[in-house]
Design a protein around this nucleic acid. Structure first.
Lengths: 332, 332
DNA sequence: CAGATATTTAGGAACGTTCCCATTCTGTTA
DNA sequence: TAACAGAATGGGAACGTTCCTAAATATCTG
């Protein structure tokens, strides 16, 4: 593989001049032409490691996701790259799931000079040990997800609480009074926030909180299915607020399998607006998270830290949107 | 950030010795201890760019996908990383979709020394120009998908043709004789192969090919829905072989919306075995692609090229598996 | 056309590693 | 204790860039 010296020789000039040409500084037109020709003919590609070594800069940001093949993240990635593209950065992705590594193991990428910064996009809870490591790198890291406890690390999150609360109030406005809640995993911050939102919503509407109406589940289809199957007919409700779409669909199928109708007998709502939500039978009323914006903002904050050495902390919370479809009906 | 010289100084030795320690060569126990202490105290991390520069090696392979958030790829990635982990390589992912770049633009990553090799996992058709570029890098690239025309670039693919043919024969064995085919996009190799498989299957069973039974569609839910809606009642069939799951689900919903029953009135089959296939109503009979193995084999081939400088070309075709569920019934 | 100024260029240090080669240290044996 | 072998170490070139400084060349001005 030819290097910059080979190009210089071929173009009858020096490596400094070639370097200047490559980096957009002025070079005499004739020299420029010769260099361009040499590059073309020899098939020259600048070595990224050498460049990274001397500049201590890669123009790459890494994005760590628990499972990169989760369609859930598509909008977020598009949002991130819409910004990085503009500022001439590249994105590389790392998957905790398939690599069997945890999020923090990727922090080394910064120390090693492989990336200029990292977006930690797993939405996961962070323990004290993890946060200690993070804090050391707070000028090159942005967190997506709940970070309320660590005021000095920039984070972007969605207002999960508000989303669910709004959904509860919506069902209230349709006349529902016995509104059940299908809970999520208790070790995920977003799930905790959503459950808070349920209680918040009830309070807003003046409904008394009944712990029996909280149906314990996880965020899977099967989990939702089984959980609802267990309580159907035993506890009385006219609506179920799901804490995500998958489990809401499990609930829906459970209800249908019991010979009941959605929304005729029970109204069901979800959270996430997954791609099939618009096409299911019935189409699901759910909450759409502003993923594109989450990604955009995360990238903006990160590049700002990297390029402008912005040292200031920010915590950005974006509001989700309710999408009204046909899985709920008014009670007269 | 401390470098190897700082560690040497702190440990009262030379950078050569520290380097030797880091790379697992013998060092006097006392020296080793001092070095370890210095590394710990100063928080040393070897610089990847310097290392990459001198070794001309990164121990990283890149994986290019059209859309990394496609769950379709999950098994493949797990398969890839199961191998790379074993051989001490890391994986980084690149997404054509969100970066708005095409597959070939990522080839530069090799020239620039950012990765040791690339798995091109987009399953896409390649034109002559693209293949020319690829051929130059054939010792550092493995293609996933159809590559029958380029015998000198290693590729891994799934036997799409055989899969569909088997499905046709399965329906034949259930007594079906008027078997329709819901086609896919005509510019994707896998879709072309599947359509060939349909004809192949008919031939095997001794059914005459009737072009009217090929329902033109794409691989989307809506596409399948509309295409089947258009022909329902106009052409006569007892089964539809879908060329992927999404469109098969579109067909299924179309049939149900027309007041017909699946599998009572029409049998429907899919291809891909997406995650909801087991939970839908009815559960979908479909074809599962051996994604984990595709990933495994791709990684094995690539690392073999990189580390052992294996120059030999191979084209590996893996067989898919039919998963029998409840969307088909026997005609007596 | 000489001198002054502006533009363009070449040389070389630096970035942080690895690894070759020469040197020093350690321990054994006669 | 001298001689030696083997283990452990240190020095320095090399990797391919960037960028500073100084030199060379081109352009302008009176």
């Amino acid at each position: 593989m030819p290097n910059i010296k080979d190009i210089a020789k071929a173009a009858n000039t020096s490596k400094s001049t070639v370097s200047r040409y490559l980096n957009g500084y002025t070079v005499k037109p004739a020299t420029a032409k010769a260099i361009a020709k040499a590059i073309e003919e020899l098939g020259y590609h600048p070595n990224a490691n050498a460049k990274g070594l001397v500049l201590n800069k890669t123009n790459i940001i890494g994005i760590v996701l628990d499972n990169i093949t989760n369609n859930f993240y598509a909008g977020m990635l598009a949002g991130i790259e819409s910004i990085t593209r503009k500022f001439n950065y590249s994105c590389v992705y790392y998957s905790c799931l398939s690599s069997q590594k945890k999020e923090n193991e990727f922090l080394n990428l910064i120390y090693e000079g492989r990336v200029d910064g990292l977006i930690l996009g797993t939405f996961s809870v962070r323990n004290i040990e993890d946060v200690k490591e993070l804090r050391e790198l707070k000028d090159s890291v942005v967190i997506i997800g709940d970070n309320a406890d660590n005021k000095d690390i920039t984070s972007i999150d969605i207002d999960n609480e508000e989303g669910i609360a709004e959904m509860v109030c919506y069902l209230y406005s349709l006349g529902h009074r016995r509104i059940a809640y299908l809970s999520g995993p208790k070790d995920i911050n977003a799930a905790i926030a959503r459950e808070k939102g349920y209680i918040q919503g009830l309070m807003k509407c003046g409904i008394l909180y009944d712990p029996n109406l909280v149906i314990k589940s996880d965020w899977t289809f099967e989990g939702g299915y089984d959980a609802v199957k267990k309580v159907l007919g035993k506890i009385d409700f006219t609506a179920i607020v799901g804490s995500n779409d998958y489990s809401a669909y499990g609930a829906l199928r459970s209800i249908q399998d019991a010979g009941l109708n959605v929304p005729g007998d029970v109204s069901v709502t979800g959270f996430d607006d997954i791609d099939i939500a618009a096409f299911s039978q019935p189409p699901m009323t759910t909450i759409r998270q502003p993923f594109f914006d989450v990604g955009r903002r995360a990238a903006m904050e990160l590049l700002d830290k990297i390029d402008n050495k912005a040292q200031c902390y920010s915590r950005i919370i974006l509001k989700p949107t309710m999408i009204e479809r046909e899985s709920c009906r008014a009670i007269i």
